[in-house]
Write a protein that binds this DNA or RNA. Structure first.
Lengths: 170, 170
DNA sequence: GAAGATTGATGAATCAATCTTT
DNA sequence: AAAGATTGATTCATCAATCTTC
């Protein structure tokens, strides 16, 4: 990590914004910049925790999807839809997990276009141990407390729903 | 963007977590996953707004740093510290901005190791117009309102400070 | 023609290694 | 030795194009 700044760069940007633009423009800019920076910090923490397990956070997400699937295997396409990443990314992700011996490819039994990714026994071990580590580290969210996290989740859930990320009957 | 899911993937993950792990483990996982997903959505929106200006959000951030600097130029190293990205990333970022004619490199006047990046007249135009567009689009934060954004900013500011992102006298 | 997956390209981030200058 | 910047390699995201199968 680089050296800390002697001032909050987001507060500084907000100051510039309020000087040159309408006051209403400040919160959107500051919120977006905050989310970008926090995401960067969280990702670094998560990858640090996962590195000893030979995992990155992206690969961990794909692995957990298989881990909690009913049969332990899913078509690559479904993985992409569920993780909301491009098909190309799924190919790369499964490539990496397969090289690490945590996942195996197999032909889809009925659709010969499709490929299944299946979690291996070693993959299940890695998923369990890595998740224990991440939970132990509270997914890097320290020092935020449960109430703060819940408020965050609720606001971001409203945003995600409005963005068309998912639809529910309710 | 891929098709929307018929359920909230984060609520689904929370359900799995509460089945297999301690209840206290749910909010950290759900908050982190939410931030990752929202960051992904916001970045896509921002890049969509910036693409007509020949900019990506990363390049926009670097450009704005120069735009609001006193002399319109900064050493590459300072840009990296300020944006909290690796020196290699700064080199690439300035490469892209230079190719677009928005920034120019020049030797540092006193330290012959260092390189200055200076914003050009075209760069200033691009910075102004792109910022107008981003402010117009509220930086992609719809439908979140000012109060929600301010709460978000405050919580994330607490996290960033604790993470050592910056230090202030107060 | 459309769906599922892969390959090859680019953008953005990192790390390791290198080179010049301090 | 340390600082500033660049190059080369790797990971992860995207898009465009391709190939097989439906």
């Amino acid at each position: 990590m680089p050296a800390p700044l002697p001032f909050d760069p987001i507060a500084e940007a907000a100051r510039q914004w309020s000087t040159h633009w309408d006051a209403a423009a400040v919160p959107p800019m500051a919120a977006v910049t905050s989310i970008m920076r926090v995401q960067q910090i969280l990702l670094a923490r998560l990858n640090e925790t996962l590195a000893p397990h030979g995992l990155t956070f992206s690969r961990y997400e794909a692995l957990m999807l298989l881990f909690y699937s009913r049969t332990g295997s899913l078509p690559l396409g479904k993985i992409g839809v569920r993780l909301q990443v491009h098909q190309t990314s799924v190919t790369q992700l499964i490539d990496g997990l397969e090289r690490a011996g945590l996942v195996e490819r197999s032909p889809h039994p009925t659709d010969r276009r499709a490929t299944l990714a299946s979690i291996t026994a070693r993959g299940r071990d890695a998923a369990r141990v890595a998740t224990e580590d991440l939970n132990e580290a509270r997914f890097g969210t320290d020092p935020l407390e449960r109430s703060e996290l819940e408020a965050l989740i609720a606001t971001l859930e409203r945003f995600r729903r409005a963005a068309g990320d998912f639809v529910t009957d309710a």
